[in-house]
Simulated scan of single mutants.
Amino acid sequence: MFTKQGPTVRELAVQALSSTERGYDLLAPKFDRTPYRTPDHVLDAVTRALRPLGPFDAGLDVCCGTGAGTGVLRQVCRKRVTGVDFSAGMLAEARAAHPPGDDGPAVDWVRADARALPFAPAFDLALSLGAFGHFLPDERFGLFAEVYGSLRPGGQFVFPLGAPPPVGSRAYWSLVGFDAAMRVRNALWRPQFVMYYRTFRLADVLEDLMAAGFAVRLLPLTDLGLRPDGSPRARLVVAARE
């Protein structure tokens, strides 16, 4: 799970007892060497799924972290990409990963809370990868509304969403255990560190997207494999501002 270059147990403990923002500032230098970074095969599958949906001029990486999604946007957007995150440490790593003058469109980096995005409707495509566990369920509609307000008419908000693991499987109990531990931690310790794996259910997500004004469709990411029943292991949620 963790390489020798990744965070130590002590570093993870300090991060877990910090606020969400401070925890990611501390984790940032080693984040890409943890299992929390979106894997390359998922990035590649999302990139392939996005190409037929374009063309796109301006892209927004919502909760960009160290810039994995920014790299996807730079492959499918023609003019400019913006990465936004509330962690200064993660933005510093993202800047280093995408220096000015390298191949692809230029990148702007903005430090802001995704629950209060500072953008006019200027983007054709918004992407987010692996960040939704940091938002409580009652914050989800507001987050989606902020993204909606940052898109031009016809703009699209996309993100991959994996199928839930089978009830009773090892993965299922691992996620249940993690979320339970986080709830106990946040009940007993301040500041809170918000990270939950089982609060982003597809039915609730679709309801909140539509309430925010999006028209939504699901595209199977078949490159990521199929479940035993033949359904895809992951889908790309495509929410359009009509």
Rank of each mutant, 00 (worst) to 15 (best):
P39R: 15
F178S: 10
Y24N: 02
G67H: 14
A211N: 10
A203R: 13
D44P: 04
T34P: 01
R217Q: 13
R198L: 07
L43W: 12
V72D: 02
Y24M: 03
L91G: 03
C64N: 07
P35C: 14
P228V: 15
G225Y: 05
D57V: 09
R33A: 15
V62M: 15
G89P: 00
E11T: 06
F157R: 07
L60I: 03
V14E: 08
S19F: 06
M210A: 12
L206T: 14
L129H: 13
D102H: 11
L236M: 13
L91K: 02
R111A: 12
H98A: 01
F132V: 02
L202D: 11
A49I: 05
L91Q: 07
V237R: 11
D108T: 14
F200G: 02
L209C: 06
G230M: 00
H98Q: 01
V110Q: 14
G168S: 13
L221K: 00
L91P: 01
Y196L: 10
L226I: 10
A16N: 04
V176R: 10
T222N: 10
V81E: 09
V158N: 03
R51E: 04
A88N: 11
G104P: 00
R140M: 06
V42I: 15
G155K: 08
A45Y: 05
T8H: 11
F86Q: 14
D124L: 01
L226V: 12
G89Y: 03
R115A: 00
P99T: 08
L60W: 07
L53P: 05
L60T: 02
L127Y: 01
V84Y: 09
T20P: 02
D204F: 07
R190W: 08
G142T: 12
L50M: 07
K30I: 14
F132Y: 08
S128Y: 10
F123Q: 12
G69C: 04
R190N: 01
A120R: 15
V184G: 05
F119D: 14
A45W: 05
F31C: 06
D32K: 12
G162K: 15
F31T: 11
G168W: 13
P191S: 08
A58Q: 07
A181D: 09
L218P: 02
S87N: 02
F135M: 08
A16L: 01
Y24C: 06
F119I: 10
F86W: 14
A122P: 02
D25I: 02
L206S: 11
K4T: 12
L91W: 00
P228F: 15
F144R: 03
P121V: 05
G54W: 10
M195S: 07
G149P: 03
L117Y: 05
L136Q: 03
Q75F: 02
K79Y: 04
F144Q: 00
L117N: 09
D102Q: 13
G71H: 11
G213N: 04
G23M: 01
F31Q: 11
S18D: 03
Q156V: 08
G65W: 13
E207H: 13
Y172D: 10
T82D: 06
